[in-house]
Amino acid sequence: MLGFIGRRLATGLLLAFTVVTGMFFFLMLTGSDPARGALGLYATEEQVAVKRAQLGLDRPVVQQYLDWLGHVARGDLGVSSAQNADVMDLIVSRLPVTVSLALGAVLVAAVLGVVLGLLAATRPGTFDRALQVVMVLGFSLPNFWVAIILALVFAVRLGWFPATGYVHLGDSPSGWLWSITLPIIALSIGSIAAIAQQLRNSVITVNGQAYVRTLRSRGLSQRHILLVHVLRNASPPALTMLSLQFIAAMSGAAIIERVFGLQGIGAVAINASGNSDIPVIMGVLLFTVLVVVLVNLTVDILYAALNPKVRNA
C-alpha cells in the first residue's frame, strides 16, 4: 500500500514538474512581455528596457528558469512584476476562497450524486427519466449563468443570501457558509448530474453480476447488498469522475468568483494574464497543479482502499 502511494505521488509530482516547466518556457518563448505588462502601453522603449533589466528578463531563459526553480524549492515564488506584492502571500490569501468553492462543490456533488444515482438505478421509470432531463440541463446550462440567475433570485430579489463578498471561515463560520452557498450550488449542479449518471450506470452493471445474486441467495437484505456490496463495487468509476469534476470545478470557480465578487485565485490569474505577470501566473499554476495532484492522490488512495487487486499489486 505504501509503495502504491509512493508511486502515485511520484507520478503526480512528475506531472506537476512537467506542466510547470512546459508552461514556463511557453510563456517566455511566445512573446509575453512582463516589463511592458507592468508599465502599460504608454511607457517608452527605454523605460521598458530598464524594467526588463530590473526584472532580470534580459538573462538567458534557461538561467531564468533555473533561478525560478531554485527559489521555488526554498518556498519563494518571487515578486509580482506588475504590482509590488509577494506572490506567495498573494496566493495564500486567495487560494482558500477558490479551494472552498471547488471542494465544497465536489463534496455536495459526491453526496447528492451518489444518492440520486442509487435512486435512478433502483427505481427505473419516472425518477430515472427525470434524472436524464436534469443531466442534460446540468450539462447544457453554463454554470456562470446559473450563478447569475441564483444571485438574481435568492440574493437580489429574496435577499436570503449575500449577493457578493467572501467571509473568512475564521471570522464567522456561519457567514462563511452563507457566502459560499450560492456559488457552490451553481458550481455543483453539473457535477451532481455527471456523478449521478456515472454511478447509475455502474450500479446497474454491478447489479447484474453473478455475485450479487449469490449474496441474495444467502438471505441478505436488498438494502444491505445495495449499500455495502453494490455501492462499493460500483464506486471506482464514480471516483474517477469525481476527480475530473474537481478539476472542472477549479476552472469553473474562476468564473463563478466573478459573478459573486469573490476575491479568489481566478481574479488573480485573470489580472496577471492581462499584465503578463509571469511570477504570479507561474505561482498560481504551480499551486493549482499541486492541488490537483493532491486530490488525484486522495482519489487513488480511496480507489486502492476499495479495490483489493490494486492494493495488493
Binding site: 506531472l15 512537467t18 506542466v19 508552461m23 511557453f26 510563456l27 511566445t30 512573446g31 509575453s32 476527480s243 475530473l244 478539476i247 472542472a248 477549479m250 476552472s251 469553473g252 474562476a254 468564473i255 481566478g266 490569474a269 485573470i270 496577471a272 494574464s273 492581462g274 503578463s276 505577470d277 509571469i278 501566473i281 498560481v284 499554476l285 493549482t288 497543479v289 490537483v292 495532484v293 488525484n296
Partner: peptide
Amino acid sequence: NMLMSLPEILIIIVVIASL
C-alpha cells in the same frame, strides 16, 4: 492523461498571457 488533469481555465490564461 496529463492533459486530462489540467484545469483548462488556467492553461487558457497562460495562453492568453502569451498569445
